[in-house]
Write a protein that binds this DNA or RNA. Sequence first.
RNA 1: GGGGUCGUAGUUCAGUUGGUUAGAACGCUGCCCUGUCACGGCAGAGGCCGCGGGUUCGAGUCCCGUCGACCCCGCCA
Length: 590
Amino acid sequence: MCGELRASDAGSKVVLMGWVNRRRDLGNLIFLDLRDRSGVTQVVITADAGAEVHDRATAVRSEFVVAVLGHVKLRDANTVNKNIPTGEIEVIADELRVLNDCKPLPFSPSDAVLANEEVRLKYRYIDLRRPELHRNIELRHQVAIAIRDHLNAQGFYEIETPFMTRSTPEGARDYLVPSRVHAGKFYALPQSPQLFKQILMISGFDKYFQIVRCFRDEDLRADRQPEFTQIDLEISFARPEIVFHTVEGFLKAAFATIGVDLATPFPQTSYDQAIRLYGIDKPDLRLPAMTHVREAFAAENLETLHVDSELPVVAIVIPKVGELSRKERDEIKAMFGDRKDAKVFEDLKRLEKSFPEAVAKIRELAKPNPEDLVVIVAGAKRTEPASAVKSGQQAYGVYSAAGQLRLALGQRYAERHGAYKHGNFRLLWVTDFPMFEWDETEQRWNAAHHPFTSPHEQDMDKLESDPGGVRALAYDVVLNGTELGSGSIRIHRQDIQSKIFKAMGMSPEEQQARFGFFLEALQYGTPPHGGIALGLDRIVMILAGAESLREVIPFPKTAKAIDLMVDAPTPVSERQLKELGIAVVGKKDL
RNA sequence: GGGGUCGUAGUUCAGUUGGUUAGAACGCUGCCCUGUCACGGCAGAGGCCGCGGGUUCGAGUCCCGUCGACCCCGCCA
């Protein structure tokens, strides 16, 4: 193939087929860079090839598909191209056939500057010819194969589950599929195969996995597409450690495809700890944790600074930032924004003038190097005394504000601290998530992970008295501040499952209507089980060093969930609608 | 739903304080060229300045609306 010929092939006769990446026409001498998925080789057409071949080579343009019959020749020393793997050789053409021509392109795969994404997505087949995208798609293949092989070797079965299934209104919005046979009824595309894999455990397939498409009708982000691929797995008689070990195993295999030897096991931290040290439930370990420094201040210091003595005071350290200008310090204040609940002290030196002992103590606690940026975030003085619950929320507010600032500063000074350079992979397990979170709009408790997650044994008695204090046997695996996957030990007892539904405000009748089949299944000998699902797209994105999922998904959708190439979604004919018993009302009428 | 960035030739971009005929590079067409590798040289074609409205003697430029791409918040059990 085009990318495979080397000096050792000199003298051999070859047939190359591929796309014309570039043509350099010097009159009687023409060079073609011939490209296929393996790479590029320079083809030389000299006068020796004859007038007919020369004429065809003259007519050839970018992205023509051609076949070349020729022989491999070592290049003269002064014409070797060290920039490409095949640069030591070239193919002297004896014969050239145009297999297909190519209209002038909207953009060329060999362009150095990319066309805008709208054009690239419309002509995705051209964009995909770029070596970068080829590499990403190949990497995706390699990663999937590595994970399959690993899980297969561990005794997992890959088992398919239905795409046309039942709508569950919890969680993300469903994509619906109308039923023709049952007019007015709908299937839903799975947000995940959650219940099916749990049923498979009940059926005795004690190690299941699937690399499977999932669908969620929510707004998109750079790292969120409406259809995405999960590495989904479930294990009977599982403890979290078994799931962790399995995931660590296949991620190690996945990272090995880019030559990275991942250290296992990954560190673990509880949700509470993550919030306290990073202000977020998906900590980016590439930057130092925050340090608690409230003790550094005397009570009257806090009073003077209008800082609440009950709320956290944390120091953010960003390494190697160096001296900041007045303008840059103002920028930090702007990043932090105007908040009622928390305040920022971005100038440690100024703080030091008024509170030398406190700042000395902060330095002792946070241990910054001289070049490091240190920023303090504290809770703003509250006007009214708060309840314990409220206090907890306010503390969370301070941590969260600090965590966001930490990430913003990390971004802003990425070049200086260098911790974001590609190849720095920091994985982490976050455990003991809260079971429920309070839904302000619905005024009820919602499952933080999903309602099939088992609560901690010790927290069972709080289910009714203190839902907010119940910890779940749920865990996330986090890479560089991105949630790669999320899982839990599941409920395997019908009575507990029912209790959880009840805690979420579901009446027995509702439970029956929505999850009756599952509550029944749980009663027929359900083994304890647990599992996890990881986003394959995100893993590949990070391994590839890509900024967006679109770089690792062959046919992605835009931020408005449109496929620009095939132009989907589209209206459908009256006849199709009628057959399905569906009438479309305009969005304005809703 | 909210906030931000962007939209000018096929592509990437420039376009001054609102002022004559909207420029460049790459690509395209034609010609020249035997050692190029982002080949080079000469000539040429190519524009609803996203779309609609407004202000103005005059709008690519100012204002309002709208559409689209991207990023973020909300949302994502």
